[in-house]
Amino acid sequence: MSRSQKKIDKINFEIFTLTYGEIVTTLLKDYEDVEEVNNQLDKMGYSMGIRMVDEFLAFTGLNKCSDFRDTADAIANKAFPLFLGFPAGIQNFDEKKKEFSLVLDQNPLIEFVELPPKYKGLFYCNILCGIIRGSLEMLQIDVEAKYKKCVLRGDERSEIFISLKQDPKKGDK
């Protein structure tokens, strides 16, 4: 398929990283409460996610995922490299509970970033959760995505915890 071989336009990551940093700064100035900032970032991510899924399908030409494991693989090894230029790792995949953690080792978003102690509650990359939630919702997969650990808060690695809320509609299995 020629469509899937088409290259997606790329830009240097620092443009994106700096823009994102500026947005978070603006949000922190506007809202005093870090929880509110987390929510707002999630909301922004959600609106981005519902648009990004179209592009994802157009560029990868991916077929339907047969189970949740496939979905996880598609996110970690197809979607992340396509949009953010690095693959994510999958950990603690639980077949029964339908949940897993995405491990982000080389996240370009947190380049140049240091969090002052007073913003300890902030999940800097919370926008990623929103994006994942938004794009999966467009595929009728209802998930909950939450930041569990973040390098910026002193954890060893960044982890996004994703769990399936309900069984997807038939056809997606």
């Binding site: 997606i8 336009d9 790329k10 994106f16 947005i23 981005m48 080389q106």
Partner: peptide
């Protein structure tokens, strides 16, 4: 390292 242009525009 690079990211996709579309994610920047959306952001």
């Amino acid at each position: 390292m690079s990211v996709s242009e579309s994610i920047w525009s959306l952001l």
